[in-house]
Amino acid sequence: MTLIINNLKKTFDKHKAVDGISLTINEGEMFGMLGANGAGKTTSFRMILGLLDPTEGDVRWKGERITYKRTKLVGYLPEERGLFPKLTVKDQLVYLTKLKGMNKQSIIKEMRLWLDRFGVPEYENKVIEELSKGNQQKIQFIAAVLHKPELLILDEPFSGLDPVNADMLKNAVKDLQERGTTIVFSSHQMSNVEELCEDLIMLKKGKAVLQGNLRTIKRSYDMKNISIKADYDLAFLEDVKGVLKIEQKKDGADVKVENEKAAETIFSCLASKGFVRKFELEEPSLHDIFIDKAGGAAHE
């Protein structure tokens, strides 16, 4: 057990930004924190980092609080991207990583490895404002990991990246995990979370609405999707009890149902109606669960 968050609460005036989150993240784990905007992800991150004091509860990394004395153990990529626009990549990384207690030579050595890895060694002496947004994001990612932190917190690491760069960053994150780094990250893109995380927490208005292992969550989730292919109009299914949503297609429909019982009802309805080419019961996607639990669309 490395990162333990215990009944964490943060109240601003009467607004409860984070309302009693508890979780445990194992060493070397990649953990996803999901939630719509304003759900309390960034506030939680800030409390983990010690930037904000919790109103109640506490956060411990290997049994101790994260204070400025232990800041070199932690790497952070904030949601709001930002670097010194007028400084070169090198000066920038040297300054930011020196604050983590690393010396200049090691910083430059490590920086070159990362720049090579991201295929941009020529950026070393370029001024940040001359780089594209995607490349700035790479540099900021490097700033978060250069000092080889034990705990890495990534707030929306892949937003705003093209698929090629997003993949590059994703691979880097996976490598870091393999090397033993504990990673906590938030994302609006559910596919990324499904791809990278084993465990997750989903927040809504500061509270955990869902928490645990991703596979278990999906399997035990009542809501299911049914993919149907049939030659006749399936609009009548809308009136079947337990149907949440129906999306008609040329040769059938995708139906979202409350639980397996509703699926059984639909199956017998169809059997009496006529021939069915395909009837497949699927586990819900994280996207569906997110919309169901976190409420509203996952907007950027």
Partner: peptide, 19 residues
């Protein structure tokens, strides 16, 4: 300027704001 370029949050995650 550090605030508007948003580099501030990165800095204060490493160094105490008072320092």
């Amino acid at each position: 300027t550090e605030k508007s370029s948003r580099v501030m949050e990165l800095i204060v995650s490493s160094v105490n704001p008072v320092t």
